[in-house]
Nucleic acid binder design. Structure first.
Lengths: 192, 192
DNA sequence: AGTATTTCTTAACTAAAGTCAAGGAGTTAT
DNA sequence: ATAACTCCTTGACTTTAGTTAAGAAATACT
């Protein structure tokens, strides 16, 4: 299970046994039950997450309605905006499935980063890469219709469509659950 | 004019006269005419931009149609995705107005960063901050209607609505120019 | 100044998303 | 096992966006 984390790190930097042990000694691994809320709107948490197993999501509550905007699965890292801004969170984070996560806070990261400056490099590379991906992603979203977005998701993350409730997927696609339902029916009709 | 760049840098790190001179000696400043294309689809450019004056935009050409997805104005920095991926660009970048920019490439940045490690820290802070902003931005986009997005833009970046052609704004809002035109008429009617 | 081009608006029509409501299927809890 | 929820679908209706086309207004060109 820990190897998933080290595989991730190895994508950016080489890592020695010493460094691995330093990370393990921080005791970051947590098992979390489906439905657990990791972060609530209004909280000023300093925790970051890395998903080893399972799925977590970001959602807002707007006019009493849940609006899911993002999913994180195996090998995804999530540093909530409130950790960066040092502000109250605008959104919730909860577990879509039973999860195994690492939970780290800013202090731990600083400790590791001063001990092993390599990790700073990793963080920079990682956030630059993520920023580029995120931008392309946003652009794709803007330039396509809900139907195209759904078909696109079917290509790129077919697992998500299986493991996540449709009404959460709908939010992720920027539409209402009823629209997603109809859109799917429409696609099935076209195929036949 | 250079002070705009140094003000930006000062948001993240303290900067000495020595460091300022090192940057100035790179001769990064460029005047660019409206309409100039800075990056074309398919190119593997390694250039990053910082806007001192003017406005540049990202756009795609899809089915022969321009689709604008992002604008960058004074104090905005832009490192195209293709610089990070080392891949062919999926989009174009061009000047919406006459601009004064800094144009830097990856080699220059590495040179400065090894000479002054502080700049590495700045880059990390900056991309983390941008990533958090971008995420919130994307979430807002997903959870609101075209009309809400337009009204939101009117609040947050009223300048853009003045300085940018409507059909480019439409793409930015994820709709067609005709829809933006009607949407605006609708809003005016409501007010009266 | 006058022409060409780009940009914006309007209209009529089509297609798709939002809304509201009802009901069914599946899951969870006791 | 039954009741209570949650989740998904469907239908009828409203609203808004996409499409196509035409023309007006503003800008750029020489």
């Amino acid at each position: 299970m820990q190897d998933i984390l080290f595989d991730f790190i190895s994508k950016y930097i080489s890592i020695t046994e010493d460094e691995k042990n330093a990370i393990l000694s921080l005791d970051l691994f947590r098992s979390v039950k489906k439905g657990t809320i990791l972060l609530k709107e209004g909280q000023k948490s300093l925790n970051s997450y890395f998903v080893l197993k399972g799925c977590i999501r970001i959602y807002y509550i707007i006019d009493g309605e849940e609006k899911t905007t993002a999913f994180y699965t195996e090998m995804d890292a999530l540093t909530p905006a409130c950790v960066i801004n040092k502000a109250a969170s605008e959104y919730f984070i909860s577990c879509v499935e039973d999860c195994i996560l690492t939970v780290s806070n800013v202090d731990m990261e600083e400790e590791i980063n001063t001990k092993f400056p390599k990790f700073d490099i990793m963080c920079r590379k990682f956030s630059e890469e993520l920023l580029a991906k995120q931008q392309i992603n946003f652009d794709e979203f803007k330039t396509s219709s809900p139907e195209q977005r759904y078909l696109n998701l079917l290509q790129k993350r077919p697992d998500l469509i299986q493991r996540v409730p449709q009404h959460q997927l709908a939010g992720f696609l920027g539409i209402k659950p009823e629209s997603l339902s109809r859109l799917r029916a429409r696609i099935l009709e076209k195929k036949s």
